[in-house]
């Protein structure tokens, strides 16, 4: 492919992955023969309509779901299960409700039995980074939706992953909070560059955040088209270039195959 000018080497590689679920009414295919790479420090958005397969695809990258066919490689090694090197930010947040913000964020460091001093520094750093300073002792139930997802992002970052996998992390938030979180995430990522794979069905969100967008078709999902987004950051949601791309991708998405 025409990837020559890209920032880094391949982090994740999907080779012909297919996923189908069997039910009483037969096999239901959600992903069909996907092959693509994710490059180092790239912000890749998997964008597509409806509810078909995007989350499943992300879970397969994480190792939380098995491929029916094909394989996922992470730094050349086949992915066989979940690992701290690929942290997931869930749409449902999936915070540990009995732990405070501090304990949620520091969890990965604690289970790895890191040094106390290291744990404290890292945890504080990422809590500060996502703007939750002062809420260290709060429980998730005491936080708003946007704040909860900040905890989710800090928790994923704090485990020092090689790749961050985000599953529609702002899907449950109201529009206003969503804009704020997109802006925050953009800034966080500028400060702490990581390889991010981000799933969404919101075109604005995709265009605001992505270096590259992979447009997926509806069920079973296949790669329809790829877009490299080179608009300067921070992006304006109303610049003519932005709106033009938005129109183009939306039309492409709605076109039947």
């Amino acid at each position: 492919m025409e990837q020559s000018g890209k920032i880094g080497k391949e982090k994740l590689s999907c080779r012909g992955i297919t996923k189908s679920f069997s039910s009483s009414s037969g096999n239901f295919e959600v992903l069909h023969d996907l092959t693509f790479d994710v490059y180092e420090n790239e912000f890749l958005v998997l964008f597509g309509p409806g509810q078909c397969g995007k989350t499943t695809l992300l879970y397969m990258l994480a190792g939380l779901e098995e491929c029916t066919e094909g394989e996922v490689f992470h730094n050349g090694e086949p992915v066989t299960g979940p690992a701290p090197s690929r942290a997931v930010v869930y749409q449902t947040m999936a915070l540990f409700p009995w732990m405070t913000v501090w304990d949620n964020v520091s969890f990965s460091q604690k289970v790895r039995k890191a040094e106390k001093k290291v744990i404290a520094e890292r945890t504080q750093y990422f809590i500060d980074l996502v703007g939750l300073t002062g809420f260290e002792k709060s429980y998730p139930v005491q936080l708003s939706g946007g704040m909860k997802q900040r905890v989710g992002i800090a928790r994923a970052y704090c485990s020092d992953p090689d790749v961050l996998l985000m599953d529609e992390p702002f899907g449950h938030l109201d529009a206003q909070t969503r804009y704020m979180m997109q802006e925050s995430l953009g800034k966080i990522w500028e400060n702490e560059k990581r390889t991010i794979v981000f799933v969404t069905n919101n075109i604005e969100e995709a265009l605001y955040l992505a270096d590259r967008i992979i447009l997926l078709s509806d069920c079973p999902s296949q790669i329809k088209k790829e877009y490299r987004i080179t608009l300067p950051r921070p992006r304006s949601l109303v610049s003519p270039e932005f709106l033009k791309l938005r129109k183009e991708i939306t039309e492409q998405m709605n076109m039947s195959d």
């Binding site: 979940p82 701290p84 999936a94 969890f107 990965s108 289970v111 928790r155």
Partner: peptide
């Protein structure tokens, strides 16, 4: 919640840590 189990494992918790934590 199975998702919490998955989250703990992806954050590096071992089997016994998943049980106790």
């Amino acid at each position: 919640d199975r998702q919490l189990i998955g989250a703990a494992r992806m954050l590096g918790a071992s089997h016994s840590q998943v049980f106790f934590r």
